[in-house]
Design a protein around this nucleic acid. Structure first.
Lengths: 340, 340
DNA sequence: CAGGGGCGAGCAATCGTGTGCATCTGCAGG
DNA sequence: CCTGCAGATGCACACGATTGCTCGCCCCTG
């Protein structure tokens, strides 16, 4: 058996047909153009020869690479591995592979990575970057490259996107606290120029209204980043302001972990004196003391759905732009309790 | 400016030369074959036209794809993102991209992914899979495909590899405990058919010998997997055996987290009654109560070094097979204290 | 019996680059 | 003046698969 240079011509020769016929027989799309027994002969030949089509040559001709670009800020942020895994699994099932690019939130890097992927003729993009330069979107639009956004919306809903329903998640969190009897609830919001930060803040506002409670400006702090340090700082700030409150809804796990530190410093016990609820981005958050009550998102499914949407766009399926929200779920653990 | 179908012929036409000349002028390797002013004219033309060589066509011709395959068990295992990130960063600097494949530790899946990547003409492989079928290695060898192993050694050192120095790490851990006065130290070992599990166990053995202490069979349990559940089970087993001990060296973070649960169940306080030390695989492990004393490994550097080695092999650099160990580091936190 | 229609398969061009070989020009040496 | 050489560039094909077009054949019908 030769190493691998078994080409379409070899298969054709062995089956006694022209390469073109072999090509048609091997491609399910065009198989009905050849007689059934011929097709079978070709398939047999391919089988015994161990033929593997050369995707490079195919791409050159068809101008499709069966490859998509995935842009994320940083793979080491625990939020992304499940999403990427979901994307890859769904893509693999369709014979596609993903090229992962880390942008580190830097616009320049983002542009470079985007260009390099475009040069490699990716068939589409999944964009999960935080700041999304509209120039990039315009560029993709001009090149007629399908794009799906993840965890981020186009302001005008002009792009398909998949994200967790952040507003609904925050409503669940606040409802949970309210049901326990909490009335004065604080919010440590994520950066407001990031889609998740903004929509969770909106959800917080809406949830309070639903409980006929006005939002108290003193009970809201906006963090500059989704980081433990910022969570620590913001929580301390809340405590220093002196306005009473019995619960904190944090914009994400990082911020909540920061809260834990600040509360301990101030001698405030959780959950006895203060309840904390957060958004589940990462593993092992349930191993903290106390175990953190969180809103869980189906990250993996976000990935698979995003890949699905992209594949549909690549296949040229017509129809309206889809904007998909996945429902979150409340996981009650030990960090929340009724106020004393 | 046209969208992107600006091809080599376009550049050649604009520079008033033959495409072949343009090709030579653009390739640094062959640039000295054309006159300097001609080369300049071509480069200028390429510049103003915004020419981007088509990597697909180039691959077809040169039989190199500037692409490497990376096989890992599961991207959502916190151990791997930093490694993958390291690999990607180093590769990107050399104009390569990585295709990530998740095998889930399944041999069949591993074979399939490997084959698909080979079909895409990757220039080499980084293999970080747990079980490594030797059939795969033979296959790669036969195809003369460069391979670098990560976190795993070829028994006969016949393959280049990069890994953390697990034996040394375990020695650091045991030394730390011994320095504090611990004499009866237990070990929850990882699976012994996995390279990391085995070498850490060996390190444990060696470290005890260095302290002139014989290993007590009753103080060693081998876990079936690197999981929290197994850590829990093994720790409970140790306690039930009744042999006294004052410290546990766990094979990795998962196992240590399981220990925390079992100790709490049994009413054994850490670090007062029992010290625990572990191997740092994952983020946020320092946020547990008590913060876990760990051996930290330079995961990211493991990735960059692996990529570096692979690039060297791909470039055809001669020389002996390199087997690289990166030094670990002890991070003392709150889970270890002198025995009472 | 002639012509039309449909099916199956071959021909050849094409995708964009790289490269062995041929060609051409100019110059130096015999 | 002719030959030889070297440097610079053009020519044409290859890489491997896809696809529009053509062609031959068979069957059916008017």
């Amino acid at each position: 058996m030769p190493d691998s240079p078994v080409t379409l011509r070899d298969v054709a020769a062995r089956a006694g047909v022209h390469p073109a016929t072999a090509s048609r027989a091997l491609n399910p799309e065009t198989r009905l153009l050849v007689r059934e027994d011929t097709a079978r002969r070709v398939l047999d030949a391919a089988q015994t020869l161990g033929y593997r089509p050369n995707p490079v040559a195919r791409s050159l001709r068809t101008r499709r690479s069966n490859t998509v670009g995935v842009l994320i800020p940083d793979l080491t942020n625990p939020l992304f591995p499940p999403i990427v895994r979901g994307i890859e699994d769904r893509l693999a099932a369709a014979g596609y592979v993903a090229l992962i690019g880390n942008t580190d939130g830097d616009d320049e890097r983002e542009r470079i990575v985007f260009e390099q992927m475009r040069a490699r003729h990716v068939d589409g993009f999944v964009l999960a970057t935080v700041h999304l330069s509209s120039a990039l979107l315009a560029e993709a639009g001009r090149a007629e490259l399908p794009v799906v956004l993840v965890n981020r919306l186009a302001e005008d809903h002009s792009m398909p996107s998949v994200s967790a329903d952040n507003e609904r998640g925050m409503r669940l969190a606040v409802d949970h606290l309210a049901d326990m009897g909490h009335r004065r609830i604080a919010h440590i919001a994520g950066p407001q120029d990031v889609s998740t930060g903004l929509s969770r803040f909106r959800g917080f506002d809406a949830a309070l209204r639903a409980h006929a409670t006005a939002m108290d400006e003193d009970l809201v702090v906006v963090a500059k980043a989704f980081s433990i340090e910022e969570g620590h700082r913001c929580c301390r700030l809340l405590l220093e302001r002196g306005a009473p409150f019995t619960a904190i809804a944090a914009g994400n796990d990082m911020l909540a972990v920061g809260c834990y530190g600040a509360l301990e410093e101030a001698g405030v016990r959780c959950p006895d004196d203060m309840s904390v609820v957060s958004f589940h981005d990462m593993p092992f958050i349930d191993r903290l003391r106390p175990p953190l009550t969180t809103i869980r998102f189906p990250h993996y499914q976000v990935g698979t759905e995003a890949a699905q949407l992209l594949l549909e766009r690549i296949a040229g399926e017509p129809g309206p732009v889809k904007v998909l929200y996945l429902a979150p779920e409340l996981i009650a653990r030990g960090s929340t309790a009724p106020p004393r």
